[in-house]
Design a protein around this nucleic acid. Structure first.
Lengths: 355, 355
DNA sequence: AATAGCCTCGTAAACGTTTTCGGCAGCTAT
DNA sequence: ATAGCTGCCGAAAACGTTTACGAGGCTATT
């Protein structure tokens, strides 16, 4: 036998070698491997068997060139993003779920980390021009998000993890920031709180605006006045939380409750309170955002909302497939707009009752 | 003018359209773009100008097919890995540095996250067969690491972030776990500690063994006995740290110091100590591993070692390029074995003096 | 018995690029 | 004036695959 195959570590077998070995034409072999109808069932199994035996894997460049498809989905993240870099990593869990869905359709997930020294829009443009993937997932969407227009213009199927403030003619999936704000305010008001502050980012990441508007609406529903002083802005990090707590403590009529949009801000808040001899959950009611390993290790435990990252990834993957023409037969076509639900987890951080 | 170019959002311009537009052959255009010598400087600038104007970007599949190269470097991570999933994300910083180096050579970094439901070895095998990148970076290397043999057999340039216990005929770059153990023990012994425990993972990630051996050697150097009971093993997470502290507190002759191999274990250790009314740095000297945002927000601050993730990424990228034949002219060839230095940062967590 | 139709397969074009080869000028040196 | 050399460019092959098309053999229908 000739030294075919990857088993020998030499040059990998191509479809040509496979065809010669089987005394078939490469066209037939290709059709057999790709499940095309006009091929004898018996020859098909022969081909499949030989392909497995020789460790044949089709050259991706060849197929890409011919069919204009890469069999890969890209997930762009920003390594410079505060959120991405701090504490419990949100994305790794999501990747897992996305990949589980994609692997069912022989798609691979490749993560595209935009470095801190490059403009995200330019980076994405390069990736699109490179045709690095058949479809893309973007995240950390801003209020005005030029990347969305870019992808629409390039006619690349995509989904955004996070809404923007732009027209809703694209697919997105987002966490339930409205529900978070509403339910948190409801809960705090029920415990007698009337001055409820929020801690959120100062940049134009869209989720901040969604959260802020819902917070304001929730206050109005309870007949509480909206006080701009209670909207505390800082970096999306534990340090940011520290500054938020600091600012809160200097407010004239000190708020009794604080809702944070990122759970890791709570680390800084706890720290600042402890410096002042104040106890979280006793001197200030705190609700974090997402449950994470961190939340359960703060003292007292952080009240927050539970969410399966893997399920979120699965939802993301399925919604993306729904917007890919190639999978129109398996997933119902359509532009998905989905708000992801979360489940409240009570900790001691908002146990404080001021009635 | 015809509707060429991506500006119109239509089908992107190919080298064919570019050549027609310039009244040149595609061969000449290609040579001009790729900096080949036999092309008139004036025509070259004409070509470059037109390419920029039309927004021409070469089709990657076409080039890949012809030259057998992808112009991409893959970085495999395991999303199921405890280390990757917990708290401050180590990898994002490293990505940044790697990309900075790669971009200088028109290479892109793509991250390959192996999902929790797939075997890492199989996953890598698939990526290799797919020829998804020209070179690879692997991480989380175990003691016996089959992925190394796989990559060697496939003749793909690669570097490992982390040593294994296998023959040193591959490139690796690793954090200085020996230095960490030695310097930590030295420091603690100087403060009078004689029973020094370590907290490390129970699996066969190689860094645990490197650390353990150096710890043992450091003890011997000070004439201290090695007590297996002081080697506390638990999951690589904050929860793991909690269990480690718990176990430590039940030891007969309670150790006065603890060296952790992952800084986020400290969160759990602090928590467990506080439950017992014990103070970190006062009742138990603690040294974490790497400085992270977290370390500075623990009370007292965690003593640990500083390290620039970006620089580490740069080193990783450069060492990888050194093993790629295509870049033999720009980086000195050779198999790199590099131990990355770290700088001690004193916190209050090991302030305790027992002399 | 002739023809229409189906099943199976081989042939060859196509995808977009790089690269080898050869050719045509223009120039220099004999 | 001719041979050789250099600089520049066009033609065409090659990369590995998919797929449209057509050819042949066989069965079934008229």
């Amino acid at each position: 036998m000739v030294a075919w195959g990857s088993a020998y570590g030499g040059t990998m077998a191509g479809i040509r070698e496979l065809a010669d070995h089987l005394h078939l034409s490469i066209g037939t072999v290709s059709r057999a491997l790709n499940g095309k109808p006009d091929v004898n069932p018996e020859t098909r199994s022969r081909v499949l068997e030989a392909a497995a035996a020789l460790g044949y894997v089709p050259n991706q460049s060849g197929r890409s060139l011919r069919q204009g498809t890469t069999n890969a989905v890209g997930f762009m993240i920003e390594s410079g993003n505060d959120v991405a870099g701090n504490l419990d990593n949100f994305f790794l869990g999501v990747f897992d779920g996305v990949q589980i869905v994609l692997s069912r359709h022989h798609l691979d997930l490749i993560v595209l980390p935009c470095s801190t020294v490059e403009d995200p829009h330019q980076y994405l443009q390069r990736m699109v021009a490179r045709r690095i993937a058949d479809a893309l997932i973007i995240s950390a969407t801003h209020r005005k998000e030029p990347r969305i227009e870019l992808l629409q213009k390039a006619q690349i199927p995509f989904i955004s993890l996070g809404r923007s403030a732009m027209p809703d003619d694209y697919a997105w999936l987002d966490l339930d920031f409205e529900g978070y704000a509403l339910r948190s305010v409801d809960r705090l008001v029920a415990k007698g709180h009337r001055r409820i502050a929020v801690g959120m980012p100062g940049n134009d990441i869209n989720l901040g605006f969604v959260f802020h508007d819902a917070y304001r609406a929730a206050l109005a529903r309870h007949g509480l006045a909206y006080d701009p002083q209670l909207v505390l802005r800082a970096a999306s990090s534990d340090q940011g939380g520290y500054h938020i707590a600091h600012d809160l403590l200097t407010l004239p009529d000190r708020p009794t409750a604080l809702i944070l949009i990122y759970e890791f801000m709570a680390v800084g808040v706890y720290r600042r309170l402890q410096e002042e001899g104040l106890a979280p959950g006793k001197d200030l009611a705190i609700i974090g955002f997402r449950e994470s390993p961190l939340a359960s290790f703060l003292t007292p435990r952080l009240s927050c909302f539970r969410l399966s990252l893997r399920d979120l990834g699965v939802g993301l993957g399925e919604s993306l497939l729904a917007s890919m023409p190639a999978f129109a037969d398996v997933y119902p076509r359509g532009i998905v707009h989905k708000v992801w639900p979360m489940e409240f987890v009570a900790g001691g951080s908002d146990a404080m009752d001021v009635r």
